[in-house]
Write a protein that binds this DNA or RNA. Structure first.
Lengths: 147, 147
DNA sequence: AAAAATCCCATGATATACCATCAAAGAAGG
DNA sequence: CCTTCTTTGATGGTATATCATGGGATTTTT
């Protein structure tokens, strides 16, 4: 949950927001990050969730399809474990930072059981896009829980 | 639940009205707040309501849909837990206060299982608007129970 | 040996917990 | 019916703990 802005220092280190850490820490001292398949951002989650995502994909896509194969390859091929140090920081790689166009500031966006890391300007645009989109489709959502 | 006016101090702290607190406290010591999608106000609810909305979405929209992706970003990205201290106060963030245009006074409005927090002037206008709206539709109400 | 990654400590900022005061509402007693 | 006492809730202030972040120092890798 929540959106948090943190600095990326010259070494590429970022503090994982403490709330996120607290949740992950119940399980382990590591997270898994990979390049988002659909957006210029980094995605992160606990390791066991990644396995769940993979199996979700298997059920929601045709089991023998080429697409499903490609997707799992893509994610697992890209994903890497990142352990955070005693102060709660992780060291992001060039590849990830470049994909998300992040230089010195990172925006953490909660997404339920996973999260995304964005370049501030990109996230600003993305959020505006989403708000506009949701607002447009609002009538079809009101039945679904009443936000 | 009725409408209650409380002060927001220089740090952004507000007392959650005791009635509201009593209801939430049966469940936990935390509430979840986020920017309303449709009005310049803050919305708050118990955490499990948010989880329910999230899981409703998971079942009603399919895994790879853009809408589902957008919604989780918007809801979990914006919402945050707020735990209240021993005197029953929460510390609202700049983002929320700004969205609701609240500076030093906040109006709490009960809305069933959730509530809203308004800037006093905005709420006054909103209430007038709602009353006018209801009055306009009065003919269709009188048959149904006599308000 | 140079570069990169990891660890550890120091610091400033900020959220959180805690204590004290004050006002409003209600109950009990004259 | 009014007064006084008690309780509860809101608000202000302050101390404490937590967290983000910068700067080495140490270790590992190539």
């Amino acid at each position: 949950m929540d959106t948090i802005i943190n600095k990326v220092d010259t070494k590429g280190r970022v503090s994982l927001p403490s709330d996120y850490r607290a949740i992950v820490k119940e399980l382990s001292t590591e997270i898994v990050c990979y390049r988002s398949l659909t957006s210029p951002c980094i995605e992160g989650c606990a390791e066991e969730l990644l396995e769940k995502i993979a199996s979700d994909m298997e059920t929601s896509l045709d089991f023998f399809s080429q697409t499903q194969d490609d997707l799992t390859n893509l994610i697992f091929g890209d994903a890497r474990r990142f352990s955070f140090d005693s102060t709660g920081r992780i060291l992001l790689t060039e590849k990830l930072l470049k994909h998300a166009q992040i230089t010195d500031t990172a925006v953490f966006v909660g997404k339920g059981r996973k999260f995304q890391i964005w370049n501030p300007e990109n996230w600003e645009k993305e959020e505006a896009r989403i708000r506009a989109e949701i607002f447009k489709n609002r009538p079809s959502l009101t039945n679904k829980g009443g936000m």
